[in-house]
């Protein structure tokens, strides 16, 4: 069995709205996946289905080759850290860690202790009295120390400041290096997590619009800035994902890579080239795919650049 998760044509309908539409995915073991998309795009719905906390309206879901629903063999190997994780009222962080230690076979108390110190988490205070950031830290600590074969982090950083978030990312890379496992990290802070990801899945309005190696995506687009007419000549028939105009200038993001002679040609035309970050590309793509925008991506460049 080589794939950890196999999702085939999954749809989820809530009354009248479609949260997931024909989602098909295959996740390989021991990689860090980014599940990215705007709020309400379907990230949490998808993760809930994969962890058997919700049902698909139609389609097939396999985790470790089996149906996850009420299947202990599968659920024992999964850790799901939700943004709004609920704990019993009387619990302290220490209680939460003790239950996690019982549940997860690979639990590392040593790592948990170290993270408690890192995040300066009060262990004996009632969880209800913790700050939002401290509550997120409890989730992050369980997610990392569980060392589950498949770990989901659904926007785990609410209330964590920049320093604490960096701590989470650093500990994730460090522990993953020593104990490789499959991690699915959902986030809309794309720039912050981009470099940690091996593979990127982008979901927009219930549909998968990108499913590729992070490095492939990083090199897959460029922005060219200069006189609108020269930009148009230079780009020719390339697929445009976004275009901004200012007076006679155009700034156009197009798909593809440029070879040396094309780069030289751009310089000779007086055009500026800029790389496109993962975040910029995703923002461009999720903007152009939404019906609220004018759908610039569907129009030929000759119209867009005008």
């Amino acid at each position: 069995m080589s794939t950890v998760i196999e999702v085939t044509d999954v749809t989820k309908t809530y009354r009248k709205s479609e949260a997931l539409r024909g989602v098909t995915l295959a996740l390989q073991p021991d990689r860090i996946y980014g599940l990215l998309g705007r709020n309400g795009a379907g990230k949490t719905t998808l993760m809930s289905i994969l962890t058997a906390q919700g049902f698909a309206s139609s389609g097939e879901v396999r985790v470790f080759g089996e149906h996850p629903y009420e299947n202990e063999r599968v659920l024992n190997r999964i850790c799901f850290i939700r943004e709004s994780q609920k704990y019993p009222d009387s619990f302290t962080a220490e209680h939460a860690f003790k239950s996690a230690a019982l549940f997860f076979a690979n639990w590392s108390q040593e790592l948990a202790d170290r993270l408690v110190t890192d995040f300066q988490l009060p262990l004996r205070r009632n969880i209800k009295k913790l700050s939002r950031g401290q509550l997120s830290a409890v989730g992050v600590i369980i997610g990392l120390a569980s060392r589950a074969e498949l770990t989901f982090f659904d926007e785990p950083y609410l209330g964590l400041d920049a320093v604490a978030r960096q701590l989470f990312y650093d500990r994730l890379v460090e522990d993953y290096s020593r104990h490789p496992r499959t991690v699915v990290l959902s986030s809309h802070l794309i720039d912050e997590v981009a470099n940690l990801l091996e593979h990127v899945i982008v979901i927009d309005q219930g549909r998968i619009i990108m499913d590729d190696d992070a490095e492939t995506i990083r090199g897959s687009a460029f922005t060219v800035v200069g006189s609108a007419e020269k930009v148009r000549t230079f780009l020719g028939g390339r697929e445009v994902v976004h275009s901004d105009n200012f007076a006679s200038l155009a700034s156009v993001t197009a798909l593809g890579t440029l070879n040396e002679s094309e780069t030289r040609e751009a310089a000779e035309l007086g055009l500026e080239l800029a790389p496109v970050s993962l975040q910029q590309l995703i923002v461009r793509k999720t903007m152009s795919a939404s019906p609220a925008s004018s759908g610039a991506a569907d129009r030929p460049l000759s119209e867009v650049a005008r």
């Binding site: 990689r31 860090i32 890379v173 460090e174 290096s177 940690l196 990801l197």
Partner: peptide
């Protein structure tokens, strides 16, 4: 090592 590079540059070890 690869893991040292990953930790130092804060990037995915596979990368």
């Amino acid at each position: 090592s690869t893991n040292e590079f990953a930790a130092f540059y804060r990037i995915n070890p596979a990368t």
